[in-house]
Computed example of a mutant assay.
Amino acid sequence: MSELDYLVLPHNKLIGEIPSSICDLRLLTLLHLADNHLEGQIPKCLGNFNSSLLALNLGQNQITALQSTFAKGCSLQSLILYGNKLEGITHSLINCQRLESIDFGDNEIRGAFPFWMEAFPQLRVLVLRSNKLNGTMLEASKTEHPFPKLQVLYISRNAFVGYLPDRYFKNCEGMIDAKDNLTRVGKDGLQTYLDLGVILKGLDQELKRLLDTFTMIDLSSNRFSGNIPVSIGNLNSLRYLNLSNNTLTGEIPVSLGNISISNTLIGYSNSKMKRRNTAKATIRGR
Rank of each mutant, 00 (worst) to 15 (best):
N134W: 07
L219T: 04
T215C: 12
I259P: 00
N245K: 10
L33Y: 04
T247M: 08
I199C: 09
E173C: 04
T29G: 14
R110T: 11
L25I: 03
L25C: 06
N181E: 06
V152A: 04
F115H: 14
F115E: 05
N277G: 13
V185P: 13
L207V: 11
H145N: 11
L123G: 00
R209K: 15
F169I: 06
H11M: 13
G88M: 03
H145T: 13
N61I: 01
G267I: 13
K85N: 11
L81R: 03
A159F: 08
P148K: 00
I252V: 15
N171F: 10
A65E: 07
N131Y: 01
S92V: 13
S260R: 11
M175Q: 08
N12V: 08
R275L: 13
I102W: 01
N95I: 02
V161E: 15
N36C: 06
T29Q: 12
K149M: 12
I228M: 11
P10S: 09
K72P: 06
Q60Y: 07
L241C: 11
G197A: 11
L200C: 06
K187T: 15
E39V: 04
L54Y: 13
S231V: 06
T143V: 15
M273A: 11
K274H: 10
L128C: 03
H91Q: 10
G40K: 05
D204C: 03
I18G: 04
L164S: 00
K132D: 01
I266V: 15
L265P: 06
L56H: 11
I109K: 02
K187P: 03
L182D: 15
L238K: 10
G73Y: 07
I176A: 02
I89V: 13
N277T: 08
I228N: 02
H11V: 14
V161T: 15
N277R: 10
P121G: 02
M175C: 00
L194G: 04
L210W: 06
R129S: 09
S269F: 15
C45H: 09
R124A: 05
E108T: 09
T29W: 03
S68P: 12
M137K: 04
T264H: 14
E206M: 09
G88Y: 03
N131V: 00
I80F: 04
C96G: 01
I102A: 03
N50I: 12
P229N: 12
A159T: 04
N12P: 09
G59F: 02
K208T: 10
T183S: 15
N57A: 10
L265T: 13
L210G: 04
N245G: 11
N84W: 01
V254S: 08
T183M: 06
K179P: 07
T69S: 12
L46Y: 00
P146G: 11
L99V: 09
N246G: 08
H91K: 05
I252A: 12
H32C: 11
H32T: 04
L27F: 12
R286M: 09
S141R: 00
D24Q: 12
L33A: 02
S255D: 09
R157I: 07
K187R: 14
I232H: 10
K142Y: 12
T215E: 09
L203N: 06
N236E: 05
N84K: 07
A159I: 05
L203Q: 10
E118R: 00
L150W: 09
L58W: 07
L164T: 01
L219I: 14
